[in-house]
């Protein structure tokens, strides 16, 4: 098909769309400083048609990441602030009786956008949460007995404060599973923080940037990413990792087959973002914590304090075929 005789030649995908993707990554890097890995992961998540959960303390730029993703990729964007009194109708919309027409008219909710930022999703009641999570799974919503298809592409970027904060309803495992990746942003390093302080206001900076890609380009990129070559040893590697999560004494519940599929899809997308001609072991390792972290249930007596550590432990105990 193509001969990747040099590293510089981009082996896969439509050149124009590829270039747009690279530009998007670069632009995101100028807004969210020093988080190149997380940006690559977030883009991979979108390319793999997955939803993204960003979990971290307030004020670390979760919202900013979601907003800039929508902006850069040219997606229509709505933000839903989840609160404890949020109702499902506030998300999917409601039918309103129009007196002048004498009929009900559907008022679409904020869910009818290409990129939804579900802010602080664990602050809402499970009822409101499930309204969102169901639409994520089905790519459609049912209101008053009518099924309405959501726009395409459709992404949910949900943010969540760590569960030990007061007044939250943590998402159960089954619903966490709907997110392809969970990211932690973490604090910026000192240089970056300094630049944040003295530099331009990020919000106004965001106003100034143009979309570098389009929804159509994104759909094409998704297709190209899904078609990326995955060699047999890599499949073996994924299987070995999944087996390790199931057999490790530190983990109560390992990865499901859906988790394995998610791992493969995310790794492909990551390889695509990284310009690899096929999926490399590095791609799997890069996405592993983000994909597996929220799907694993650590054993009670485990010595690993965080999901990230646990995932690293799994990676460190499986040989690369």
């Amino acid at each position: 098909m193509q001969s990747g005789s040099t590293l510089e030649k981009l082996p896969i995908g439509d050149d124009q769309n590829r270039a747009a993707l690279d530009r998007a990554r670069k632009t995101l890097g100028t807004i969210i400083l020093g988080k190149d890995d997380q940006i690559a992961l977030a883009l991979s998540c979108l390319l793999a048609r997955g939803h993204l959960l960003i979990e971290d303390l307030p004020g670390l730029g979760k919202t900013m990441l979601a907003q800039s993703l929508a902006r850069v990729l040219g997606l229509s964007y709505r933000r839903i602030q989840f609160t404890s009194d949020l109702l499902p109708a506030d998300i999917v919309g409601v039918s309103v009786f129009r007196q002048e027409k004498g009929e009900f008219e559907f008022q679409p909710g904020p869910i009818f956008s290409q990129l939804i930022l579900a802010d602080e999703v664990n602050r809402a009641t499970p009822k409101a949460q499930s309204a969102l999570l169901e639409s994520m799974e089905e790519y459609q919503v049912s209101v008053d007995g009518n099924t309405r298809t959501l726009p395409e592409p459709f992404f949910v970027v949900a943010t969540q404060n760590p569960a030990d904060q007061i007044g939250t309803f943590p998402l159960p495992e089954s619903q966490l599973d709907r997110f392809l990746m969970r990211l932690e942003l973490g604090y910026p390093n000192e240089d970056n923080e300094r630049e944040l302080i003295i530099g331009e206001d990020r919000r106004s900076m965001l106003e100034g940037i143009d979309a570098v890609a389009s929804p159509e380009a994104l759909l094409a990129l998704q297709k190209a990413a899904a078609a990326l070559h995955m060699s047999d040893p890599l499949v073996d590697y994924i299987q070995a990792l999944v087996r390790q999560t199931r057999e490790s004494p530190d983990i109560d519940i390992g990865l499901s087959p859906r988790g394995a599929l998610a791992l493969a899809a995310a790794a492909k997308a990551h390889a695509f973002v990284e310009h690899h001609s096929g999926v490399y072991p590095d791609d799997i390792q890069a996405v592993f914590a983000a994909v597996a972290g929220h799907r694993l249930k650590p054993a009670g007596n485990t010595t690993y304090r965080s999901a990230a550590e646990l995932c690293q432990h799994v990676l460190d105990s499986v040989a690369i075929p």
Binding site: S3, G4, H229, S231, P233, H276, G278
Partner: peptide, 16 residues
């Protein structure tokens, strides 16, 4: 490293 990654994991291509 580059050749190995391409030859083993990349799109099949004997040149690698």
């Amino acid at each position: 490293t580059r050749s190995y990654l391409e030859a083993r994991y990349g799109v099949p291509d004997p040149t690698w």
